[in-house]
Design a binder for these strands. Structure first.
Lengths: 126, 126
DNA sequence: CCGTATCCGACGCGATACTG
DNA sequence: CAGTATCGCGTCGGATACGG
């Protein structure tokens, strides 16, 4: 597994620390899905429609490694494993909320700009 | 060029919009470097030590496409081109500050967790 | 000075199939 | 249920060299 966190990210710009990215396509979503309490492996696959078990495992492992989530194996059969946000993981909710708010407010604008860029009339010249 | 923004990012999780990532390794740094005013192409290479012109161009172009920066070519020789944060780009500074604050407060903790994970004694058993 | 052209390696992510 | 094993593709980003 790799490190979605760049250690140089905070020194690369002379001015001040630049924002991190918690990393990857799924990490933020998983954090949000764990916001309201512990979830089992299989439960996460529902809101995270489209994630494969391999990727879910990978992502969860790296989050565990970084101390963002805790993994609890209750053993027995059928297996039962729960993932939960750690205290550290919960501290991410605030900055993430700020990002969500930005997106809600300004993402359409960005998408419009993207469409307009090089967006000559599709096929109707005159 | 590609799209670092995942359009599904806001619908993939059932609960609510999940945080975006503005994308890539350099975009956030560039935003911060433009925070205090317009900068010329060559000026950005200084604080962004290590970026290649190709990547800088690519990143700036995609930011321009997304309406985050404006590009002004003053013409003449030697060439003189300035990049500046747009109004939309400036709205990113707030959420980015929240992320910076998080990193300043908690990144060491995360790094410690990462080291501790699988971090048996490096080579001194007894 | 401000880029572009070409090549290329590494990683993120997904599809599919299999197991304790 | 909760994963693991393999395989492969697309993209990001870097090295290097050249052009207006």
């Amino acid at each position: 597994m790799s490190e979605p966190l760049d250690p140089d990210m905070f020194t690369g710009c002379a001015h001040a620390p630049t924002p991190f990215r918690v990393g990857g396509k799924w990490t933020p979503r998983i954090i949000r899905c764990l916001e309201s309490g512990p979830r089992r492996f299989g439960e996460l696959g529902v809101p995270l429609r489209g994630i494969t078990p391999k990727v879910l495992t990978e992502t969860l492992r790296s989050m565990e490694r970084d101390g963002l989530v805790t993994r609890t194996d209750h053993g027995g059969v059928p297996p039962r494993v729960e993932y939960e946000l750690s205290a550290l993981g919960r501290t991410l909710l605030a900055p993430m909320a700020a990002c969500c708010a930005w997106a809600a407010a300004h993402l359409p604008e960005l998408l419009d700009a993207r469409e307009a860029y090089g967006g000559q009339a599709p096929c109707a010249p005159g």
